[in-house]
Structure formats: C-alpha cells, structure tokens
Computed example of a mutant assay.
Amino acid sequence: MIHRSDLLFFAQATGQQDPVYTDVEAARKAGHRDLPVPPTYLFCQEMKEAADSFGYLEDLGVDLGNVLHGEQSFVYHALAYAGDELSFSSELAADYTKKALRFLVRTTEVTRDGTPIANLSTTTVVTP
C-alpha cells in the first residue's frame, strides 16, 4: 500500500516544492483524490514491496560489489495515489555484454486492480 507518510518523506528527501505532493487539500484542489505518487517514487515502492529486491542478481551469480546503477525509465499510464494497493510484476528482459560490461535490464509492470499504472525499466551494469 502507498502510505501518505512515505510520500511525504519522499517529497522532502527529493526537495519537492509543489504542495500537491505534500498537502492533501492542495492535491484535492488540483483535482486529485489524495496525494499523487510523484515521478520515480514507484521505483522506491517496488524495492519496498519486494522481499529481496536484489535477489534476482544473486540468482544470476552476480557479485553485488560489482554492481552499478545504469539507467531507469518510466512509462506512466495512470496516476497512483496514497492509499492505493499496487501490484508489481517483474522479469529479466535482457542480459547482454558490451565492452566487458554485463548489462541486465529488468522490467516491471505496475497495476492497480489489474489496470496498468506504469511500466518500469531498470538497467544494472555489472563490472568485471
């Protein structure tokens, strides 16, 4: 579940100045039913929801000491709000080597009651 307190903490940590992300009344005046989930927050929620968010790397034999964050991308289909129950379904979409570096691309579909909310993509770089 998306908790308001987590959204408020994220807004503060990322320096969010728009009151739509920190004040429920401002959010409602702007046409939202509650605090909207800010851009990139779903990546944090995915890690929070997973029992072991890096377990797939260990399953692939990756030494976590050799891992670099490569890239993230988000495609949004609908807004998510405080109080929403979201489901995260992930898979390894690509695993390739380029110039001695291994690239792992993990995609995640985020839904609310079966309705698409977003598609997340994370590229992890594994160094030799």
Rank of each mutant, 00 (worst) to 15 (best):
Y56W: 11
D23C: 08
E49H: 06
P116E: 02
D34V: 11
F54Y: 14
H32W: 03
E58F: 04
F54I: 05
E49I: 08
Q45N: 11
R28Q: 09
A94R: 08
T97G: 12
V126Q: 00
V67A: 07
A11C: 13
P36V: 07
H32N: 03
Y96K: 15
Y41F: 09
L7E: 08
L7V: 14
L7K: 07
Y41E: 02
R33G: 04
R112L: 09
V24N: 05
L60E: 06
A26M: 07
V24C: 07
R102W: 10
Y21L: 12
L86C: 14
A80K: 00
V125F: 05
H69R: 07
L101A: 15
D52I: 03
G15F: 14
A26K: 04
L64F: 11
L57E: 00
A11V: 13
L86M: 12
A50C: 14
F103S: 08
A100L: 06
I117T: 00
E109G: 10
P116N: 04
E91K: 03
A13Q: 15
Q45L: 09
T107D: 04
I2D: 05
P39M: 11
Q17C: 10
P19K: 05
F9V: 15
A78M: 13
V67G: 06
T111Y: 05
P38N: 03
V62P: 03
R33T: 04
P39Y: 03
Y21E: 15
L92Q: 00
A26I: 02
L8G: 12
E71N: 03
F88L: 10
E71T: 04
F10H: 15
F103V: 08
F88M: 10
L60Y: 04
V125A: 00
L120S: 01
G31R: 05
A50P: 13
Y56K: 03
G61V: 06
D59N: 08
D84R: 06
N119L: 12
H3Y: 15
G114H: 13
H69Y: 05
